[in-house]
């Protein structure tokens, strides 16, 4: 049951990424390109995604436990530190350089595997480097 829910969530997520244009690096970069031919599409993606999730959070506050599991496992919402800030800034640089973030890159493995493979492999290498440095 849990595996099916996770697969359903991932599949719907991947489908949404392609339909929305998030999986197109050109469109992502056009959104980030304030001094070029700016494309506001990604703002609509973000807005569209936040509405169902905002409703989900209000439902979550009324639930004792999730529908398909024993307990909620949610991250902290407070506590800003240097790691969070530096990590976010680095992520933004990589996002701008490649026009890809983790979700669209992994989703695109079934669409343009050869083209996105360098990004995905390097991304996992970067995650591994982080693991090495934070031991």
């Amino acid at each position: 049951m849990r595996i099916i829910l996770a697969l359903l969530s991932g599949t719907l997520f991947g489908a949404g990424l392609v339909i929305s244009g998030m999986a197109d690096p050109g469109r992502v970069r056009a959104f980030l390109d304030l001094f070029g031919r700016w494309d506001p599409t990604l703002a609509f993606v973000m807005g569209g995604a936040i509405v169902p999730m905002a409703i989900a959070w209000t439902v979550q506050r009324r639930l004792e436990s999730p529908l398909g599991d024993k307990a909620f496992s949610l991250p902290e919402t407070r506590g800003i530190d240097t790691r969070l800030a530096v990590g976010a800034i680095l992520f933004g640089i990589g996002w701008g350089l490649g026009g890809l973030c983790p979700g669209p890159a992994i989703a695109s493995l079934s669409l343009s595997p050869v083209a996105v493979a360098p990004f995905v492999l390097a991304m996992f290498a970067g995650m591994g480097l982080h693991r090495l440095f934070t031991r």
Binding site: L5, S9, G16, I19, S20, G21, G47, G48, A56, Q60
Partner: peptide, 29 residues
């Protein structure tokens, strides 16, 4: 060149997917 309609529809799908993860499995997507 913008595609606000497709962006909105795809965005809602992403939000629903994250809602399944949150309400179904209690986790962040």
């Amino acid at each position: 060149h913008a595609q606000p309609g497709a962006g909105l529809i795809g965005g809602v799908m992403i939000g629903l997917a994250a809602a399944i993860m949150l309400l179904g499995l209690g986790r962040i997507a």
